[in-house]
Design a protein around this nucleic acid. Structure first.
Lengths: 201, 201, 201, 201
DNA sequence: AATGAATGAGCCTTCATTCAT
DNA sequence: TATGAATGAAGGCTCATTCAT
């Protein structure tokens, strides 16, 4: 059947794209993306260099896809918070896990590289800002409902969300420096920070 | 005199080093340090490529020197806080200026690149961590005295300092993404954050 | 019927070949044939890359076929001259049109590329020389009859024909350079040239 | 001395450029310039690939320089005609030599490639047209004086010059096809052509 | 101290061609 | 007949670094 063939093909293409992204993520994580050559990515992905270019226009396009992918993973986490009932509670309760997710040194370093690169590459800047904005919007929505339900003000909500986001990025930076952020002290103090940001007392 | 000649020479060498660092900082800021070639740095510095290698062993060594230099500038700021009497007060009062210093997009992007790079380069990691640790120590000392003077606990002080540092790095990341962090909302909420981190109620 | 099927198939195959040649000619004209990739030719032809290789062994084989095709078109023109009665008269009378046919910049550039390529590729050289020789033979035949009918000598006829051919190739080169060769001056002077070549006075 | 050093350096740089151009011309002649890789040019020139890029921005820039160079050589020939007294006489007397210069198969093929390439590359088009125009101007000046001295009309002189130029380009094309243009027949008939073009009788 | 010529490995990317389906 | 996924060699070009002067 044509239809089945088509779908098969599409699925396979998606599989290939994933295969490439997985390999690229691995390589970028290990070496950073300036040092990760297309040659080594292709070897890691188990396919020829040329073939990668059937699926991605550019090395840059791979990066962009990876940014989108990271953002989607964050969305999943946020959706899980939503599903748990009260968003603020879920966020705070998740903190130790959140820190652990942030603690991956190489992954965090890569995230910083994305941001740094985006400051000098408008194409990437668009992708990153869109992904980031959408995640922040998701956070904003969840927190807004939760705060209002608690009778808390939602004044400056966007700034609050941005600050929470900044705090996690900052923690990622510490992780990238090799600092262990998965301790009770961190969990406790990050929690206090977030509460101070969110609750107008 | 031999001695004077010697000193003269040393001073000139320092001047050359500064000249190079200034140029490198400029180039790195503009293009990131993978894209900033030694050729363009030498041109910006107004000296030949080969000559730069008289003063720095490596491109990497330039980066390392720049990290140290940045750290020294931070020390100056912290020393100024100390000089103002109460460290905590000085830190909080300085916040709007602190945000403004952090808001430089390219400079912040470069800082992130430093950190990301250091995650994959142990030599750089040493330099960055030493610089960072020394700045945090300075902060720790200042804050410790100030907190104890207020009758506040200094439990988990190192973590608190790390978190404040993380917060500023996170804000730098936002600046690198092109977000304006120099607003009253930010100043107010960052202040609340820091207070929550520092004061155990 | 088997025979009809066969013929049908043959016709379809010819149609496919034409389709490819048309597309290739278009692409070569636009980009030159080093820059015209098989991928873009296949896209222009509305068929897959692989399929083109059912009809042509090579990219080179396409070029060869195109050379033959061009030559056939020239034959048509020459046959038309013949049909008009006196060949020399027909040739001279056609001059303004001949210039116009030669004036297509991209087509002329392609022709030069063919020739240049053939100088370094013996396979192509054979094809081009055969095509060229056959066209010159056609010209020679027509002119010979016409000249003798006028009582003109046909001494050095092959050289004369070659020179006329060279003149048109040279004009094509000028067209390829973007020069307008469709003016009365050109028509007049080209006519004088040809007459000088043909008529031993 | 600084001055001597400077001159020495400039001379050496010119020598290097010549060395590269010589090698490139050789490679281009042999393989055409799409097939002649920078690697092989650099090997032929006896220097590293990277070094070539100190002297030429591009492969294209090498081609451009080669075009200019060819044009200069043509100027030398034309100047020699001028020096001989009557330009027309000199041109006609030189014909056998002119044909021989044109007869180099590879060189002629390269010339055609230049022209073909220039039809699709505006940068190259500019260079080639400027070089060509200047040579034609030189020819025009020489012929104009000579014609008027003979009491001949110089009507349509630019077109006449263009046609002579076209004739030689066409002969180059024949040479590129492997045809021997160094015979008395050619010399005789080319002469008749040129006379027909130049003299309004 | 100072220059910049010189190197050559390595980068991203393209392309003609093949082959399983 | 028809597809297009897959290959991998080769291309132009850049760059940190060295070294003779």
């Amino acid at each position: 059947m044509k239809g089945a063939d088509q779908r098969q093909t599409v699925d396979q293409a998606d599989a290939r794209r994933d295969q490439i992204l997985e390999a690229a993520a691995e390589c970028f994580r290990q070496k950073g993306f300036h040092a990760a050559s297309m040659a080594i990515i292709s070897k890691t992905a188990g396919m020829s260099v040329g073939h990668i270019y059937h699926y991605f226009q550019n090395k840059e396009a791979i990066i962009a896809a990876l940014i989108v992918r990271n953002s989607e993973q964050l969305h999943d986490v946020l959706n899980a918070f939503q599903a748990q009932g009260d968003f603020v509670n879920a966020l705070l309760a998740d903190l130790p896990d959140g820190l652990e997710r942030t603690a991956d040194r190489e992954q965090s370093a890569l995230k910083l590289e994305f941001i740094a690169e985006s400051a000098r590459n408008s194409e990437l800047s668009c992708v990153l800002n869109a992904a980031d904005a959408s995640a922040r919007q998701r956070l904003s929505d969840g927190l807004g409902v939760s705060l209002r339900a608690r009778g808390q003000s939602d004044v400056d909500l966007d700034t609050k969300v941005m600050l929470i986001s900044a705090l996690f990025t900052g923690l990622a930076a510490k992780a990238a420096q090799g600092i262990d952020i998965c301790t009770d002290s961190y969990a406790r103090l990050v929690r206090r920070s977030i509460e101070a940001i969110l609750f107008e007392d």
